[in-house]
Design a protein around this nucleic acid. Sequence first.
DNA 1: CGTTGTGTTGACAACAGTCAAACATGGTGG
DNA 2: CCACCATGTTTGACTGTTGTCAACACAACG
Lengths: 242, 242
Amino acid sequence: MSAQTGDSISTLGPCGSCGQCLHCEARSRSICSVIDAEHMARLAQYSHRLAVAAGRTFIQEGETASDFFIVTSGHVKLFALMPDGRRQITGFAQTGDFLGLASGATYAFSAEALGALSLCRFSRSGLTLLRREFPELENRLMEEASRELVQAQKRMLLLGRKTARERLASFLLEQHHLLPAREITLRLPMSRTGIADYLGLTIETVSRTLNALQREKLITITQVTQIVLLNLPALENLARGG
Amino acid sequence: MSAQTGDSISTLGPCGSCGQCLHCEARSRSICSVIDAEHMARLAQYSHRLAVAAGRTFIQEGETASDFFIVTSGHVKLFALMPDGRRQITGFAQTGDFLGLASGATYAFSAEALGALSLCRFSRSGLTLLRREFPELENRLMEEASRELVQAQKRMLLLGRKTARERLASFLLEQHHLLPAREITLRLPMSRTGIADYLGLTIETVSRTLNALQREKLITITQVTQIVLLNLPALENLARGG
DNA sequence: CGTTGTGTTGACAACAGTCAAACATGGTGG
DNA sequence: CCACCATGTTTGACTGTTGTCAACACAACG
C-alpha cells in the first residue's frame, strides 16, 4: 500500500505493520507505549497510517466523529470557526498527542496540519476493541483527557478575564515552559495571526502589546519569531494578573 | 457514622452502604450505573458520602488533587480565581457529574456548593482500583471527559471571540436546551454576578445587554431571574455570530 | 421603616478593534 | 544581482464596545 498521489491525504498502510510504532518518538507518550511487540500485529487490524500535506484541514468541526487520531510526527492546530471567519484556536497537538477526545457524535473542532504531518488513524469502534484488549490504554486516554481539561480551564480564565498584556505574558511563559532547558530565547512556532487567534486578540493588538513589553524591558524581539525573555519574574507576575 | 456538626462538610458514611446509589437519580449517569448490587458492597471500601453546606468551597484550586467526587444531589459552581479577585466560572456540575477529572497533581479549579449538596468521594487510588474491577466504569469516565472537553471548546470560542450580545444569546439558549420540554420561559439559576463571571463580562454589561435584547423584542424579562425567549431563530442566529 | 443586598441606569474612561498606510521579509524571475 | 511582487508586520489615527465609578431603584428582611 503505497502513498496515493493526487490527494493531500495519503494512506500509508496499517500502523502496526510499519514498525515505527515500536521505535518512533511518539512511543513514549502514545498508544504504542502500552502495547508490546507480540500484540503489535493486532494493532494493524484497527489502525492506518496517514500522511497529511501542510496546511490541509483534515478534521472539520461538525462532521461525524468516526475516527480518532494519534500524531506520529508533525504539529497540528486545533480551532473553531464562526460563520463570519472569526477563529479561535483551542490548542495545538504534537507528536504523541491524541485527536478526537473532544467529540460527541460530531467533532467539536477543526484540525489543520501546520507542516508535513503523519498520523495514526483508529476507527472509534476499533479503539473500543483496542481498549478492551489493552486496559493500560485506558490510563493513557484518561491522562490525556485530564491534561487537556486542565489546559482548557487555564485558557478559559485567560480568554474570559485577562488583559492583552496578561495574555501575551501567559503565552510567552507557556512557550518557555515547553523548552527543554528553560532557555530564555524563544522561537515562536506561529505567526502573529496564529498568536492572535490563540489568545482571542487581533494581530494589531498582539504586535503593539509585544512592542510595549519590549519598551518596558520585559522582553527583546530579536526577530519577528524570536523573543528573549529579559525579566521572567515580572512576566510571571504579569501573567497571573498581580 | 452520623453527620458531624460544627463543620460545613459532614461525613455521612460509606457510599455503597447508603443504598442510595442503587436508587438515586444520580444512578443513571454516575458511576453507580455500571455496578450491580452484588458488587455494591465493595464500593463502600473506596467511597464516602459527604454533605456540603450551601456556599461552601470544598475544592480549592492548587491543592493536592487526592480525591474525585460524584455529585449525588445539588448543584456545584466550578471556577478559577485571579489574585485580584477576577473570577471565571468554567462550568457547573449537577447530580451525576464527576468532579476532579480536570486535575493533574493539583486541582485546576475551585468548586463551591450552590445549595445544599451531597457528594460521593473517592480517593484517587480507590478509583484506580475501582476502574480495574469495573471496566465499564472506564466508558463512563471517558464519556464524561469527552463531554467536558466538547463544552470547553465551545466556551473558548465564546470567551475568545464572541461579543456581549452573542454571549448572552448563547447563554440563554444553553439554558433553554437544559429544559426538559424546551419551554421558552427560563428560570435563570444564578444572579447577574454569576452570569457575568460565567460569560467573562461585568454585571453592568450583562444587565444592559439583557435589556437591549428586550428592547429588540428578542426576549422579555418578566422577573429578574425569569426570561421568556420571544424569538428563538433570531437568538440562535445571534449566538452563532451570524 | 430603615437596612442590606441586588439590579439598573448614567456619565465617562480605557482598552482593544477597525481601517489604512507604511514598512519588512522572502521568494521569483528577469 | 536586483527589481518586483506577495505576504506578513508594524504603526498611526480613529472608533466603539465594554469596563469603571457612582447614583439610584427595588425587594427582602428584620
